[in-house]
Nucleic acid binder design. Structure first.
Length: 224
DNA sequence: GCATTAACACGTA
DNA sequence: TACGTGTTAATGC
């Protein structure tokens, strides 16, 4: 179980629940650390938790039959995921890999289902998140087919700062150019070149192991 | 052409 | 020493 203070500061949806439901949710959450390069979830695993990123960075994706890594989304701090597998009670469809040492919060299955059955506030939260994620993935399919590498890097960076999905993000993220390349599906030299291009355009600031976003709206539509 | 990999130099924690 | 960044050369689709 996590402390009340940790619950309120690291779980963005805590305040959306009435007091008694908050307390029930808090008692159902445990913390866990995943080392850099380790898998939190393998494709085919049975899922027993709804999972939130507290610190660090995860990559949602899979490996194609030809062995190529495909990224579906970066999962930054304050992002919660895995509700699909819990609601459908089916094995996990994708891999979740820690790009760096990452702390996650795990809400156990029983508590998740209790909230799902009994809390209007929790259901509204789920609908909002699923709706937003659907829009994000549809946009991503379009962009992967139309944008060049600069647009894809800009897009995948911008998607980390989605205020519905990861509301605690602010404007800075600790992420190396190597990791940006892994998320955007480009090599590090390309990520490096694009980041300099985006900095020249005034959309972000490169800070060595991190990036500060200066203009999220233009970053989101860069290259269109 | 544009991207990738491998390699090297450089600065910093 | 380890890591992140900037850059180049060789190579492939």
């Amino acid at each position: 179980m996590i402390s009340e203070e940790q619950f309120l500061t690291s779980v963005f949806w805590a305040q959306e629940l009435p007091r008694d439901e908050q307390e029930r949710a808090r008692r159902g959450i445990t913390l866990r650390t995943v080392e850099a390069g380790a898998y939190l979830i393998h494709r085919g695993d049975r899922i027993d938790n709804w999972t939130g990123v507290v610190t660090g960075l995860l990559r949602l994706g899979s490996i194609t039959t030809s062995g190529k890594a495909v990224t579906y989304a970066g999962l930054p701090p304050s992002c919660w995921f895995g509700e699909g597998s819990l609601l459908k009670d089916e094995p996990r469809q994708y891999d979740v890999l820690a790009l760096r040492r990452t702390q996650v919060a795990l809400l156990n299955r029983a508590t998740f289902h209790w909230l799902y059955e009994n809390s209007v506030a929790f259901d509204r939260l789920l609908v909002r998140l699923i709706n937003e994620r659907l829009g994000q993935f549809i946009a991503q399919v379009e962009h992967d087919r139309t944008l060049d590498s600069a647009g894809r890097v800009a897009r995948s960076l911008a998607s980390l700062f989605n205020p519905v999905i990861s509301p605690f993000m602010g404007s800075h993220i600790d992420i190396s150019q190597e990791e940006i390349g892994l998320l955007a599906g480009v090599s590090r030299p390309v990520a490096n070149r694009v980041l300099q291009e985006l900095e020249k355009a005034g959309l972000l600031r490169n800070e060595g192991g991190g990036v500060t976003i200066l203009d999220l709206e233009r970053l989101r539509y860069y290259g269109e």
